[in-house]
Design a protein around this nucleic acid. Structure first.
Lengths: 335, 335
DNA sequence: AGACTGAATGTAAGCGCTTTCATTTATAGC
DNA sequence: GCTATAAATGAAAGCGCTTACATTCAGTCT
């Protein structure tokens, strides 16, 4: 475990000069640089990250706070972030907030205590006020999937309204008029926006909005199952169903099948998110792609640009969803 | 940002006493303790983790190296590890090795550079020799899903042979005799062991081993598809198929369906791992459960016991798989 | 009260590195 | 060669905390 002191003695220079060579912070004569590098190589010197961090109050690492460490959504996000930073020679430190305020705060504090140079936050429970205060403390962070009006230039999000619109428009284009909609929990902004997009598409098609054709689900599989049972019990005729996420779509497919319906011949179903499961259902699920990997990558680029002053292509803050047509939606047969 | 110096002045004690109160390292008179605690509370003092780590060469955090940051297997593993440590008041730092030797080494060095107290390693590419040397450097670590003979007491693994045995036995019990097997890449130990279990079950049933009924897949969906095509092209009659993982089983199901086979009426299929996708296939996939969450939890307990000297229930190093019967395997109709 | 011993606390050095300011060296111009 | 200036380097302090060893305090026994 050689230290900088040993390197400086072997190279015959001061500690400060070794530091300058390592960090390229000031000009160093080429001949001096070579002596230092040779000494480092001979000793197999590796700088102590903790000491560097204490002295410099930086760490060349970036903290990521996600709601969970498992699940395709978060996996794709952290994976794409990590890949971007790996290329830039930086490390990530990941913490989980579990969508609870105290745990989210604890996670953020953990990351800050490790002197992370910036944070990428996917948080739900902490208040806008807390986030505004975080910015006031000069802590650099970027938010994913969270809109805070006062922090707009550091919010990366998806145009959920457009996603709901696209999903609905596909079915309308296929001739469906008897549509059902299983929403997420409507206190959530993304669930509201997705539903608004659905309503907009209906309006443009000259269809009336009918509250009976909305079922508020929970973003889990059970919500999809319950939605199907609700529509059947209400005797609401459906030829197509829009689910506000893929997991509920999967639940709806299973329940519809158990109720004797053929998918997609009797009921077309479309989901939202394009998480991994949509590829494994039978029939394969049509869905709206949530470009979470691209958004994670953009968050990483934001940090590289804003915090490390690296050149980056133009930053994009609002992402658009994309329609993924698979097998679960078909053209309505002509009457 | 109050420091320990400010706390000591306000409480009227030395730095060392504040440290003792914080870390409970030596006895402190109760009245002194109360003064220190009051000063800390009044100042809103939070110790600087970096400084603590530099001075003590510890960090109250544990490093986890996984092959990937995405995917249900790794998600479940790190999630269960994190949960166990969260309960114990510790944090995890996660790095990805991407199954490449250089990246795995870089990840381990990153974790060590953060003074992680121990490592939990899921590594494939680094050699046994490297791991033995790591131990020689007195670095505490536990391996998941890796057997290194010289490091046996710190290896947590699955009895893969039993899993292959259980999968095969189910089908034999259901009356199937025309079995196919799609293995993982046979240079991998787990793929070998799973296949050995399959062979054992055949042997016990008095069936001959036929090399034509083995197709070596790649553990990806394409491997499953290719396996089906191989068996069909060879004109090998099958009533049941064992796939060495769920992803290949999914590919096999899709391909069989495209080839006009009904699942499970004409071909029963069983997978291995019980990753999330097995729940979403149609019909739902029978599989062998890989208790990765329990194994991750056990790795965490190993660390808590061996490194932090906390009391833990008896440690378990070898885990047994469990048969999960869903809808993709049926009893062979009587001739 | 004094001596002894254990408990409690303080002092000082150090963990390994960064960085500011002082000092030295090198270069250019006259 | 001398002067001025820029480039390069060194010395010293400090980042915030831990901990070993020295010192002080408190309790018990004679």
């Amino acid at each position: 475990m050689p230290t900088i002191y040993e390197v400086s003695k072997l190279a015959g220079v001061s500690l400060a000069t070794v530091s300058r060579v390592m960090n390229n912070t000031s000009p160093v004569r080429e001949s001096t640089r070579k002596k230092v590098e040779a000494a480092m190589a001979e000793l197999g010197y590796r700088p102590n990250s903790i000491a560097r961090s204490l002295a410099s109050n930086r760490s060349d690492s970036i903290g990521i706070l996600v709601s969970e460490l498992h699940g395709p959504f978060y996996g794709a996000m952290i994976s794409s972030i990590e890949a971007e930073f790996r290329t830039a020679g930086k490390h990530v430190i990941i913490a989980a907030g579990h969508s609870e305020e105290a745990t989210e705060r604890d996670g953020i504090e953990f990351l800050l205590s490790r002197n992370c140079d910036a944070l990428i936050l996917h948080v739900e429970a902490v208040s806008d006020e807390y986030l505004v205060q975080l910015k006031a403390k000069e802590i650099p962070f970027v938010l994913i999937n969270r809109q805070v009006p006062a922090l707009q230039p550091q919010c990366i999000s998806l145009n959920n309204k457009l996603g709901g619109y696209l999903a609905t428009q596909l079915l309308l284009r296929q001739g469906h008029r008897q549509l059902g909609y299983i929403s997420g929990p409507l206190w959530k902004t993304d669930a509201q926006d997705r539903y608004r997009g659905h309503q907009l598409a209906l309006q443009e098609a000259g269809l009336d909005w009918d509250p009976k054709r909305l079922f508020e689900g929970d973003y889990h599989e059970d919500g999809g199952s319950a939605g199907i049972r609700y529509f059947l019990q209400q005797g609401i005729p459906l030829t197509a169903l829009i689910c506000a996420n893929d997991e509920m779509a999967s639940g709806a497919m299973t329940e519809a099948r158990e109720q004797g319906l053929f998918i997609p011949q009797q009921l077309s179903i479309i989901g939202f998110d394009n998480v991994m499961l949509s590829h494994y259902t039978y029939p394969k699920l049509s869905t709206i792609d949530y470009p979470i990997a691209a958004m994670g990558q953009m968050a990483a680029r934001w940090v590289l640009k804003e915090v490390y002053q690296q050149k980056q292509p133009e930053l994009q803050l609002v992402f658009e969803p994309r329609l993924i047509e698979r097998d679960s939606c078909v053209v309505l047969p002509q009457p």
